[in-house]
Design a protein around this nucleic acid. Sequence first.
DNA 1: TCAATAAGTTGCCCTATGCGCAACAAAACT
DNA 2: AGTTTTGTTGCGCATAGGGCAACTTATTGA
Lengths: 241, 241
Amino acid sequence: MRLLQSLSRGLQTLDYLVEQAKPLRLTDIASYLGVDKSNATHILRTLVACGYATQGTDRRYAASEKMTSSQGSGPTAEAIVATRQQWQPVLKQLTRETGECSHMAVLASSQVWYVDKIDSELPLKVDHPIGSLGPLHCTALGKAFLAFGDAEAKQELKQFTPATLTDHKALAAEISKSRDRGYAIDDEEFTSGIRCVAGPVFDEHGVMIAAIGVSGPTVRINDKRFEELGALVEKMCFMRE
Amino acid sequence: MRLLQSLSRGLQTLDYLVEQAKPLRLTDIASYLGVDKSNATHILRTLVACGYATQGTDRRYAASEKMTSSQGSGPTAEAIVATRQQWQPVLKQLTRETGECSHMAVLASSQVWYVDKIDSELPLKVDHPIGSLGPLHCTALGKAFLAFGDAEAKQELKQFTPATLTDHKALAAEISKSRDRGYAIDDEEFTSGIRCVAGPVFDEHGVMIAAIGVSGPTVRINDKRFEELGALVEKMCFMRE
DNA sequence: TCAATAAGTTGCCCTATGCGCAACAAAACT
DNA sequence: AGTTTTGTTGCGCATAGGGCAACTTATTGA
């Protein structure tokens, strides 16, 4: 079983460039590979010549667009539509069983993007319209991405209600709790009078692709029912994995 | 200027596998590279070992998901949201100037996916809800993807109204006309009584990422106004390029 | 501002790499 | 069944490419 050394090293370099997702110095790449700088130069020059890497003005090397476009930047339209088709029955069941509105959202540029919803039949109801955007740090769907996906709450945590967590440390603790719990909650943190629970949806590779959740007015959701809704959402998310 | 031969060949092989987008036979790859079969075996074995290619049960080689996921499968959530933010003013202007409903859609699994809309203020109006899906062959937005994007109308052309083009040849001719015209039209082909026009939105690389269009009831859109709407949409699409 | 230091590139030599030939094995076709 | 075509393995030789060191180009520090 013989493998081509220089090709292996080149591909390993590509992996490293993609993984680090930032321009890297030649020396670091060389030491990562465990080869001489000159060898690393040859490898990277070849990668650049073949369009698999680029060299910036500061001489650092990065994976080319050909590589990076695949990775980050969230799910594709196709994946979202497919996931929505697949999970819509779950949303319907959630709304049927709870009487409350259910949503599906994906991650887009550090925001949650609502891509599907099933309305509640009750006169007092929650409605995040499909196509709208929401913050990560104070919605259940957003927190689900923080807890189970690879999202990060980078920017300032804007205050929407008295209950909004505006401290990064407090938020991190809450996210950690959500992970243990198996679902995320929003207790009037985005809109006063609204409580939500949400859980993660994973694709076939175990990557979180969407979040689904149930939202209702606090007047109908006491602490006991809040927990029941959470357990229900967690169960539903788990079912289809 | 020295390049590593085996690495170059490996990357060239990757390009070829991605480009062909189907499992390829060893012999074909070897002849494409102009190397011996044994050399091709080593190259492919290395690619497989590094996770950049896969070998099927029929012994054919294909680019791994790591590669293919990047290419096709449409724009990412991030790109869609960014495009929507950027073009929403155009939709608003279209609706303001025409009084009719305007839409933005992206391509997902050979369907158009409506991702934004601005409603008409008039009592009789068109409304494709955000989040809904539509066919390619008989909507203006869909035809815009056929004419200016890389979409293809593969499957059977379902008849929705008497005006729907159900023949692939007739559709191809109409698409060709749309290309010349600069915008696509739907003359009651999806819903009787509704006429639409649509044009393409390109990203910074010149790849069509979305379509925007105006739809209104035929009673308000005679042939002359139909053409005016088309010219307006074409102008608006062109403006921001 | 100019040393001093570190990072990146080029040249060269020698050997391990990996290319091609050919035999072998496994499908595909008849 | 035999025949042809395709894929894999073994092996030896040539050369591709790995490592050393000198050189060039940035970066740091005073």
